[in-house]
Amino acid sequence: MARNVYRPPEQGRAGQVFDSVFLLLLVYLVLFMPLIFGLTGQATTTRVVENPTWEALGQNEVAAGQWEKLGFTPESASELITTRFDYVINPLSLLLTAVVILGYFLFVIRMSDKEYRDVIAERFDGDGRDGGGRR
């Protein structure tokens, strides 16, 4: 066995409960709350059509027939048809997103490498073997 074995502290019940609650809070605060407060919805625009007809909504005869089979009228289908994604690209927000993703991966890889050196040192150093993985 390796000589310098790291002995981690035992985590008590209170610490385990704290960590579990922290993770739950993280999920609810960072992912759930923005969702229910409408901060993360689709970026869309809707064109209002006064007195909509299938023709005014750009639907041919076959498409209009299928809408009607689904129980829609031109009035009830109007918003579905005229709502479109807004793909305008804001260079600053795109750059920010790219930096966040790249920065995240760089941090994870660099920190993992530091931790990995501990793992490899403990697994392979001091036992006189080069193929010291557990068998």
């Binding site: 993280l26 960072v30 993360t40 966040v100």
Partner: peptide, 23 residues
């Protein structure tokens, strides 16, 4: 990013905070 950019940032924030907690 096209259409769901804010949600993408929320997800990245989650993994960044979780990573800091672990490290």
């Amino acid at each position: 990013y096209l259409g769901y950019g804010v949600q993408l940032l929320a997800m990245m924030s989650f993994y960044i905070v979780a990573s800091l907690w672990f490290a």
